[in-house]
Write a protein that binds this DNA or RNA. Structure first.
Lengths: 342, 342
DNA sequence: CTGTTAGCGCTTTCAA
DNA sequence: TTGAAAGCGCTAACAG
């Protein structure tokens, strides 16, 4: 007598029976009340309330062939960079019928692969991925899936579908040029969590210094450990040991830059006179530090915004823009690199 | 001739036909290969590869009545507090068949309501909510839904289901006691983004100071703006204007504490001699600052971990523990409040 | 404006 | 070990 399966929850059918209408009428009312006469509408609303009916979104997605989920893969949630991007994504998705689903790859390509499969199995409306180093398998899967995809944070050739970011290598070059121009000559690099983007910053650092004939491999301190302020202090000590002559440090992260500032304070090393410091990303704290810290400002919020708006255009079928969008970056010159009086 | 509906993707049926087996055999193989003879297994695997078949998770969830999604609602993604909690959640979920789905309420109760409805409509395996101030409607919805729920970050009476956190009020009291013990007498409070937890910290601050007969309403600076280091600098200036005599500041956030430290450096005010500073949460940077900053350490990672493990036990049916778990907090005494030589 | 019928893609049930 | 039939909760398609 009892239904053979079923969750026990009320279904659209229960509501229909209770309100003495067809199930499809309930369905219509839920999606567009104006398609149902006020009379039935009231009865249905009443039944919904009484039966505590909550529509099942996956049944709807299955039946309609439409999914309102936009999946977002980020390598980290403690990294403020991605927090800002996610804010841009959320704000833009907010006024649409879509919803955001975030997943964390923890900087692991295997995990990214796993999550991409999981998402593809969900048939999301679109997918936002971080970086451009997805595995071959993942690429193939995505390309076959026909799901709109945006790769964010970097630019590069051969996007899976769309791409929004900037060149980390160019950004690093502009940092070196600034330090050089300010008169620093013994420039070091400090990097943590050497993910592909950090590697590209390091690569820009090397290329540019070599071109200036100022490169010295002792002036590099990198680690796979995740970035932190204390780590900045440690890396500075390490650099100082490797070459006591260094006069500036380009940090792959703002955290490290702050750590180096603290270490200099602790050792009574004058910033910017004895040591110039540059960070990367220009988190809010950089301008509030004493002295204020030079950093590369990246348009993280904007990247999130644009990722979503490209997706929306793509879904609506009026995506015309270029596949790869470069949002650029801006070097924020502050007191931590003010050697020259200008 | 063409199917009337359908996405164009290959389905389990396509695979079954191709491999000349029943659909259910494919289904079985996907879930437990050992239930299918090696011969068929091979054929099916081959067909899956050829047809690029990817199982549809929502169809599976619908048919089986089981959902592997654990939903997590957080008020913010830029707040490191939640980043750490999410890390704990992810790490614990990782070795289970479940997957995490994060949503962001942006400190808005309406948004939280909307998202809770959305989640309930998905019939997730469980839900993790932040704080204990859900709307009445949301509570009712959740209670009717029968979904395991954990409220995190705070403790309190009357949990929806389970609850894991600590008392923000008690934590504030312990801060005041420490400052008092160190000899500070004109203690101020700086708070941003006055969410319910921040309000409870403020309330602890007031209660305790009143008990000590040291309360002065001029020594409070609060704002709805979101917390930042620069804001810390601003709030300190404001406090100083409201009462130039203050000798210590309890900050509702570590960001603010760092900002106050910077402002003191800029104004050449000695910390801890002239001003004692205490933060809240004990983010990593606090111990790396110069001078190191006193803060209240909260077990964020652990909260995430325990939230998930309670859920797992609840799902397996062997949840016996108390409904409300207090993970406590720890005051990390550092140089920014070292007035007394001890 | 409203309803009937036939799926969406998968799994449960029951049988072989 | 394998499969056929029925159904999960909802909606598209086509009537009326």
């Amino acid at each position: 007598m009892a239904k053979r399966r079923g969750s026990g929850r009320s279904t659209i059918n229960d509501v229909a029976v209770h309100a003495k209408v067809g199930a499809i009428t309930v369905s219509r009312m839920l999606r567009d009340p104006s398609k149902v006469s006020p009379k039935l509408r009231e009865r249905i609303e009443e039944s919904i309330r009484l039966l505590k009916y909550v529509p099942d979104s996956k049944a709807r997605a299955l039946a309609s062939g439409q999914n309102d989920v936009i999946g977002v893969l980020v390598p980290s949630l403690s990294n403020n960079v991605f927090a800002d991007i996610l804010r841009g994504i959320h704000d833009t998705v907010h006024e649409t019928p879509y919803q955001v689903q975030i997943a964390n790859t923890r900087y692991s390509t295997e995990e990214e692969d796993r999550l991409i499969s999981l998402f593809v199995g969900q048939r999301p409306a679109a997918l936002i991925l971080s970086g451009r180093d997805q595995s071959k398998n993942a690429r193939a899967l995505l390309e076959d899936s026909n799901i709109p995809v945006v790769q964010i944070v970097e630019t590069g050739a051969d996007p899976i579908d769309m791409m929004i970011g900037f060149s980390h290598e160019d950004a690093a070059v502009s940092v070196i040029d600034h330090l050089f121009e300010q008169g620093y000559r013994k420039i070091a690099f400090a990097g943590a969590r050497m993910d592909p983007r950090m590697e590209r910053r390091l690569s820009g650092f090397r290329t540019r210094l070599k071109a200036l004939d100022l490169y010295d491999s002792r002036r590099e301190a990198t680690t796979q450990k995740s970035s932190s302020v204390s780590l900045g202090r440690t890396l500075f000590r390490q650099l100082h040991e490797q070459d006591p002559q260094i006069d500036a440090v380009f940090c792959g992260n703002d955290d490290l830059a702050l750590g180096i500032l603290f270490e200099c304070q602790a050792q009574q090393i004058n910033v910017p006179e004895k040591i110039g410091i540059v960070g990367f990303n220009d988190l809010e704290m950089m301008s509030a530090a004493v002295p204020s810290l030079t950093s590369v400002r990246t348009s993280r919020y904007e990247i999130g915004e644009q990722a979503v708006s490209s997706i929306l255009r793509r879904i609506k079928g009026n995506f015309t823009g270029p596949k790869v969008v470069d949002v650029g970056f801006e070097l924020m010159r502050r007191n931590s690199t003010k050697l020259k009086k200008s």
